[in-house]
């Protein structure tokens, strides 16, 4: 980096290229392949798997994003 670029910016550049960012792909893999969850059983509290799995997958998205945020913040 050239000298006129502030410290915060070069830190931001490093965090934008952190390998932790690959974790952001996990929620996509968990939800964009319907054959993984397109079934009725096992049911949870009488709710078919298709529905409770995808509601639970919201947590996968949140946890992945929080980990990436905490590991890459400056």
């Amino acid at each position: 980096m050239s000298q006129d670029v502030p410290e915060a910016t070069s830190q931001a550049e490093r965090s934008d290229h952190s390998p932790w960012n690959w974790l952001l792909l996990l929620p996509l893999l968990a939800t964009l392949i319907p054959p993984l969850y397109n079934r009725v059983s096992p049911e949870l509290f009488d709710i078919p798997f298709f529905y409770w799995y995808q509601l639970a997958a919201i947590a996968i998205g949140v946890i992945s994003t929080i980990i990436v945020y905490r590991m890459t913040r400056s």
């Binding site: 952001l24 929620p27 939800t31 397109n38 298709f50 529905y51 997958a57 992945s64």
Partner: peptide, 26 residues
């Protein structure tokens, strides 16, 4: 079931745009 697409849609959107939006903001 097809109507439930709104859930995976709003799960994947945030991780997908996480890195893109901060570049746009900057």
């Amino acid at each position: 079931a097809i109507g439930f697409f709104a859930v995976p849609y709003t799960i994947v959107v945030y991780p997908m745009v996480f890195l893109v939006l901060i570049r746009l903001w900057s």
